[in-house]
Design a protein around this nucleic acid. Structure first.
Length: 971
RNA sequence: AGGCCGGUAGCUCAGCUGGUUAGAGCGCGCCCCUGAUAAGGGCGAGGUCGGAAGUUCAAGUCUUCUUCGGCCUACCA
C-alpha cells in the first residue's frame, strides 16, 4: 500500500476546505408519512385550479375519464387505472397542453339497488312496500356516499383532478342529457321493441339478475317427446327431445342439434313390458344421438332396436306435438353450439321465449318473432291454445313455489296426442329467487333495442362503428381487433332493464300497438323536467298527464314506459354531458383509458352511442391496461388469501412506490404485484432518490448565471448534454405513446449509467477540490443544473411527491410547485452524435482499465484507483484518436481523470504479455502500474511533490490554489 | 366450452422485419472506497427464452399442438 502523504506529522486537515455535497434532503423518504402532507399542501394551493389558470389559451389535450362504479373501496386495479390516467394527463400538461382531468362516477345500476335492498331486508322491510322515488332517493344517497369515499381514496394516490367538480351519471344535468341522447335514437326511429327471455320470478312479478338468484335442488318432471318429421326421406320418423320444463312445450318453435354429434335412425323392434305398458311402440322410428341411444332405450323400456342408418338433421322439418290444435306451424331443426351429448337425446327442444340459448339460436337463424306464452304472473296468456289461464308456478298460499297446473296439463295433452315417449323425475340445481325462495322461470319480456343494422347496410350502426374504429388508434394495437370482433358479432343493443335505479326510457307507447310517440315538444318538456328535478320527474305518478296533456290530443291512450336504461347507456353518454357540456372540456376526446374489459363495456357503449348520434367515435385514441394479479400470477381473491389493497401499499411503502411500479411495468399486459415486486420498485426508487439528492447536494450553492458557451465545455459535459437531447426525444415520444416504462427506463438508465457511474464519479474530484471558479467545475455545475431541471420535471408525472420535495428543497417557496412547470427546454443544438461515438470508445477502454485495477484489488495490491497510473496500450489508432479528440489539454491527464487514476500512460501497440485484456474489447491492453509520488492530503491523488507550492507542500498545486481561495474567504 | 391475449435470469423489462457466445437495471455473492456513507464504484454467478413437434442453412423471433395464467362471453360495473 502506498498511503504516505507529503504532510508533516500533524499536518492540516483540509476537509473543511472541500466543497462536499450539502443538502438536508433526506436519503430516506418516509413516504407513508410525508405523502399526506404533500397532498394537504396541494389542496391548500388549490393546485389543480392553479394549473388550469396557468394553462389558459394553450391547446387543449382532451382526456375523458371512464367512470368507476360508486360502490365499494378503491382496490389496486382501480388505483392502477387512476394512476395511469394521472400519468397521461400530467405528462401532456407538462408537454405544453391544457390537460384537464374531470373525474367521473357511474352511479346508477343494479349493485347499488341490491345494497339498498339489502339494508331494507335487515330492517324487515320489503322493497315493494317503499314508494319508488323514495327507494331511488336512497340509491342516490348510497352512491353519493361511496363517491365521497372513493374520491378521498383517489386523492391519496396523488392524482390531480377536478375533485370538487366531478361528473356523475346521476347529476340531474347528466340524467337529462342521457334521456335526451336516448330520445335522439327514438326521434330518428332507431329504436324498436322486441322481446327477450330473462330470468323472471312469477311470485314477485319481476325480472331477476343472475346475482339475485340462488341455486337450490329442485325436483323437475322430465319428458321425452317425439317430434314427427314432415316429408323427406325420414317422413314418419320422430326426432326425440328431452326437457325438464314441460310447460315450455307450447312455446316450442324449433329443435336444436349439433353438427358435431352423430345421429342415428333407430327402429324399435321390441319393448319391455314387465311392469307397465311403455309408451314406445314396436315399429316406430326414432332419431337420437348415437351416444345417447342406450340411455333413451332404457328409459323408454325399449328392449331391442335396429339402427337403420345415419341421420343428418340439417333441414329437417317437424310438426309440433299439438299440431291441429292451434299449433299448426313448422318446427325446423336448427344447428346450435349449445347442444351436447351430456344428457337427453342430442336434440334440444327450443322455445325462443324461455331460454337464452333458444333465443340466440332462433335469432341466429333469421327468425324475429318470439312467441309470448307466459304473462308476468307466470300464467299462460289467453291467446295460448289449450292451456290459457293455467299457472306455471303457484304464486300464493302455502304452496307458493310449487308446480302450478301447467306441467300436468301439458303432460296430459302430450300423452293424449301420443307424442310422449317417456317421463321421469330429476333432482337438479335450479335457480330460485333470493327473496321468495320460489323457483324462477325464463320468460320473454318486452324489451327495447337499438338495431345494429338497418336496410341501408353500411349505413347501419354496426357499419358506422366499424368504420369509426378504423379511425381510432389503439394502445396496444391488438385492442382494435378485440373490440372490432365484438362489434362485428354483437346482437342488437338491448337497452331496457326492468329496474328502478337508473335513467328511464322516457317513452310513451300507444296502448296495445307498441308504437312509440315521436314528438319533439313532448321530449323537450321531459328533458326540461329532468334537468330541474332529475329522472324522478318521469318516475313520478303524474308523468303521463304532465308531459302529454296539451300537446297530444289522445294522450290518455298512451302509456308510460317504466323500464330504465342499461347503465352502459348512461356511461356511453358521458362524452356528451362531459366533453360537450362542460366549458373546460372538448369533444371528441384525444384519449380514453381503461382496463381491457372495457372493450365490451364503456369503449363499446360510448362508441355505439356516439356513432348513433354523431356518426363517429367520441375518442381518437384508446389505451387499455391489463388486470392486477397476485405475485404468483393468479387472480387476487380473498379465498386464495393473496389480496393486497392500496392502503397496505400506502402504509408500508408509500404510494410513490406504487406509482413507480406502475411506471416501470408493462401495464398493457396483466400485472403481477406483491411484496417482492414492490421491494424491487422501492430499490429503484432509492437509486433515483439518491441521484436527486446528489444533484441537490452539488447544486446547493449554485446560482444559475448566464448561459455558457456549450462548444467550450469539456467533452464530458457535452456528452451529458447530448444525452439530455436524446433523453428529451425518448421521454416525449414515450409520454406521447403512453409508454411509461420506456420513459422511466430511459431516465433510470441515465441516472445509473451516465450520471452515477460516469459523470458524478469522474467529476467528484473537480466538484469537491477545484477552486470555486475553476471553469471545469463551473461547467460541471452548469450541466448538473440542466440535468436537474430535465430529470426532475421528466419524473414529475410519475413521481409527483418526490419531485415536489426535490423541487422545493432547491427552490423553497410557499406557492411554487414543480407541477406548475412544463418539461425543461432542452436545446437541440446540444446533440453531438460524433462526440457520443468518441465517448463510447472511451468508455470501452475505460472498462478495460477498471477491469485491470480490479485484479490488483483482488490481489490486495491496491485499494483506491487513485493509487494507480496504468499504462494503456491501444492496438488500433481509432481509440487513441477518440481519447485525444475528447481531451481538453493533456490527453493522458484527461484519461486519468476519466478512469479516476492519478496518472496515465497512453501508447500505441499491443502492450506486453503482462497486460490485462478483456475478451470483448479487443486491442486494449492495460498494465496496472502504481502511481509515483506522494498522496495529496486534500484530493488524495498521487502527485510529484517537487511541483507543490512551497507554502502547501502536502497538496497539489491545484489544491493549493483552492485552499488559498478558501482561506481568503473564511479568514 | 368459445373469442382475444400473454408466459425471456430471483424481480421488472430490452431483444425491430428469423442471422454472430440472448442483453440492461435491481436483487444476490465477492471486492474497493469511507469526503453521496442505511450512500458510491467495481467484478461475478444466475436463463434448455413455459413444453413438444415442424418449416429453414439458421428460431426467443414463423407454423401446429400442448400446458399454465388473464380478460370477455351477466337485468355486474
Amino acid at each position: 500500500m502506498n498511503n504516505k502523504t507529503n504532510a508533516p506529522t500533524g499536518g492540516r486537515d483540509y476537509r473543511e476546505t472541500l466543497v462536499l455535497p450539502k443538502t438536508d434532503f433526506p436519503m430516506r423518504a418516509g413516504l407513508p408519512k410525508r405523502e399526506p402532507e404533500w397532498i394537504a399542501r396541494w389542496q391548500q394551493l388549490d393546485i389543480y385550479v392553479e394549473i388550469r389558470k396557468n394553462s389558459k389559451g394553450r391547446e387543449k389535450f382532451s382526456y375523458h375519464d371512464g367512470p368507476p362504479y360508486a360502490n365499494g373501496h378503491v382496490h389496486l386495479g382501480t388505483a392502477l387505472n387512476k394512476i395511469l390516467k394521472d400519468f397521461v394527463v400530467r405528462s401532456h400538461q407538462m408537454m405544453g397542453y391544457d390537460a384537464s382531468f374531470v373525474p367521473g362516477w357511474d352511479c346508477h345500476g343494479l349493485p347499488i339497488e341490491w345494497k339498498v335492498e339489502e339494508g331494507y331486508r335487515k330492517k324487515g322491510k320489503a322493497k315493494d312496500d317503499v314508494p319508488i322515488n323514495e327507494f331511488r332517493a336512497e340509491c342516490r344517497a348510497y352512491a353519493a356516499h361511496w363517491l365521497d369515499v372513493q374520491r378521498e381514496e383517489f386523492k391519496r394516490l396523488g392524482v390531480f383532478a377536478d375533485w370538487d367538480n366531478p361528473y356523475t351519471t346521476m347529476a340531474y344535468s347528466s340524467e337529462a342529457r342521457i334521456a335526451s341522447e336516448f330520445l335522439k335514437f327514438a326521434e330518428a326511429g332507431k329504436l324498436y321493441r322486441g322481446s327477450k327471455p330473462v330470468m323472471w320470478s312469477p311470485v314477485e312479478q319481476t325480472a331477476l339478475a343472475e346475482a339475485e338468484v340462488e341455486y337450490a335442488d329442485h325436483v323437475s318432471t322430465t319428458i321425452w317427446v317425439r317430434f314427427a318429421v314432415q316429408g323427406g326421406v325420414h317422413d314418419g320418423a320422430s326426432v326425440l327431445i328431452w326437457t325438464t320444463t314441460p310447460w315450455t312445450i307450447p312455446a316450442n318453435r324449433a329443435v336444436s342439434y349439433s353438427k358435431k354429434i352423430p345421429y342415428g335412425l333407430y327402429e324399435v323392434t321390441a319393448i319391455d313390458d314387465s311392469e307397465f305398458t311403455p309408451w314406445s311402440v314396436v315399429g316406430e322410428k326414432l332419431i337420437v344421438a348415437d351416444s345417447l341411444w342406450d340411455d333413451v332405450a332404457k328409459t323408454a323400456k325399449i328392449s331391442d332396436a335396429t339402427r337403420l342408418g345415419d341421420v343428418d338433421p340439417t333441414g329437417l322439418i317437424c310438426a309440433h306435438p299439438f299440431t291441429g290444435e292451434g299449433y299448426d306451424f313448422d318446427v325446423p331443426l336448427l344447428e346450435g353450439d349449445h347442444v351436447t351429448e351430456e344428457a337427453g337425446t342430442g336434440f334440444v327442444h327450443t322455445a325462443p321465449g324461455h331460454g337464452a340459448e333458444d333465443y340466440d339460436v332462433w335469432l341466429a337463424n333469421g327468425y324475429r318473432d318470439i312467441p309470448e306464452t307466459v304473462g308476468p304472473d307466470g300464467v299462460y296468456y289467453d291467446h295460448v291454445p289449450l292451456f290459457a289461464g293455467l299457472d306455471i308456478i303457484r304464486t300464493t298460499g302455502k304452496k307458493t313455489g310449487q308446480d302450478g297446473k301447467a306441467n300436468a296439463a301439458v303432460l296430459a295433452k302430450l300423452t293424449e296426442t301420443g307424442a310422449l315417449l317417456a317421463r321421469g323425475r330429476i333432482t337438479h340445481s335450479y335457480p330460485h329467487s333470493w327473496r321468495s325462495k320460489a323457483p324462477v322461470i325464463f320468460r320473454n319480456t318486452p324489451q327495447w333495442f337499438i338495431p345494429m343494422e338497418d336496410d341501408k347496410g353500411a349505413e347501419g350502426l354496426r357499419g358506422k362503428a366499424l368504420a369509426a374504429l378504423k379511425e381510432t388508434e389503439f394502445f396496444p394495437p391488438r385492442g382494435a381487433n378485440r373490440i372490432g370482433a365484438m362489434v362485428a358479432d354483437r346482437p342488437d343493443w338491448l337497452i331496457s332493464r326492468q329496474r328502478a335505479w337508473g335513467v328511464p326510457l322516457t317513452l310513451f307507447v300507444r296502448q296495445g300497438t307498441g308504437e312509440y310517440l315521436q314528438n319533439r315538444e313532448v321530449n323537450a318538456r321531459i328533458i326540461a323536467a329532468i334537468e330541474a328535478e332529475g329522472a324522478d320527474a318521469w318516475v313520478a305518478e303524474n308523468a303521463q298527464e304532465r308531459f302529454l296533456k296539451g300537446l297530444v290530443d289522445d294522450w290518455e291512450t298512451y302509456e308510460k314506459i317504466t323500464d330504465i336504461l342499461d347503465v352502459w347507456f348512461d356511461s356511453g353518454c358521458s362524452h356528451a354531458f362531459t366533453l360537450e357540456d362542460r366549458e373546460d372540456q372538448q369533444w371528441p376526446a384525444d384519449v380514453y383509458l381503461e382496463g381491457s374489459d372495457q372493450h365490451r363495456g364503456w369503449f363499446q357503449s360510448s362508441l355505439l352511442e356516439s356513432c348513433g348520434t354523431r356518426g363517429r367515435a367520441p375518442y381518437n385514441k384508446v389505451v387499455t391496461h391489463g388486470f392486477i394479479m397476485a405475485e404468483d400470477g393468479r387472480k387476487m381473491s380473498k379465498s386464495l388469501g393473496n389480496t393486497m389493497v392500496p392502503e397496505d401499499v400506502a402504509r408500508q411503502y408509500g404510494i410513490e412506490i406504487l406509482r413507480l411500479w406502475t411506471a416501470s411495468s408493462d401495464y398493457q399486459e396483466d400485472l403481477r404485484i406483491g411484496d417482492e415486486i414492490l421491494k424491487t420498485a422501492a430499490d429503484s426508487y432509492r437509486k433515483i432518490r439518491n441521484t436527486l439528492r446528489y444533484l441537490l447536494g452539488a447544486l446547493a450553492e449554485y446560482e444559475p448565471g448566464e448561459e455558457m458557451d456549450v462548444a467550450n465545455l469539456p467533452s464530458l459535459e457535452r456528452l451529458i448534454l447530448h444525452r439530455l437531447v436524446e433523453l428529451d426525444e425518448q421521454v416525449k415520444t414515450g409520454y406521447r405513446n403512453f409508454d411509461y416504462k420506456g420513459v422511466f427506463g430511459a431516465i433510470f438508465t441515465f441516472c445509473n449509467a451516465d450520471l452515477s457511474q460516469l459523470f458524478f464519479d469522474i467529476r467528484k474530484d473537480s466538484l469537491y477540490c477545484d477552486p470555486l471558479n475553476e471553469p471545469r467545475r463551473k461547467a460541471a455545475l452548469y450541466v448538473m443544473d440542466k440535468v436537474f431541471h430535465s430529470v426532475v420535471r421528466w419524473l414529475a408525472p410519475t413521481l409527483p411527491f418526490t419531485t415536489e420535495e426535490t423541487w422545493l428543497n432547491r427552490f423553497p417557496s410557499e406557492t411554487d410547485s414543480v407541477h406548475l412547470h412544463d418539461f425543461s427546454k432542452v436545446d437541440a443544438s446540444w446533440s453531438d452524435p460524433e462526440l457520443a461515438g468518441h465517448w463510447a470508445a472511451i468508455r470501452k477502454v475505460r472498462k478495460v482499465v477498471l477491469g485491470a485495477l480490479e485484479v490488483e484489488r483482488r490481489e490486495k495490491r491496491m485499494g483506491s484507483s487513485l493509487q494507480s497510473a496504468p499504462i494503456v496500450s491501444l492496438a488500433g489508432a481509432d481509440d487513441l484518436a477518440s481519447i485525444a479528440k475528447m481531451a481538453e489539454g493533456d490527453t493522458e491527464q484527461f484519461f486519468a481523470d476519466v478512469c479516476i487514476t492519478s496518472g496515465m500512460v497512453l501508447q500505441t501497440g499491443s502492450g506486453n504479455s503482462q497486460g490485462f485484456l478483456l475478451e470483448d474489447v479487443p486491442g486494449v491492453s492495460v498494465e496496472p502500474v502504481m502511481a509515483e509520488g506522494v498522496k495529496c492530503a486534500r484530493s488524495w491523488k498521487m502527485f510529484d511533490p517537487t511541483t507543490a507550492d512551497p507554502a502547501y507542500p502536502d497538496i497539489t498545486p491545484r489544491d493549493a490554489r483552492a485552499v488559498i481561495e478558501w482561506d481568503a474567504a473564511n479568514g
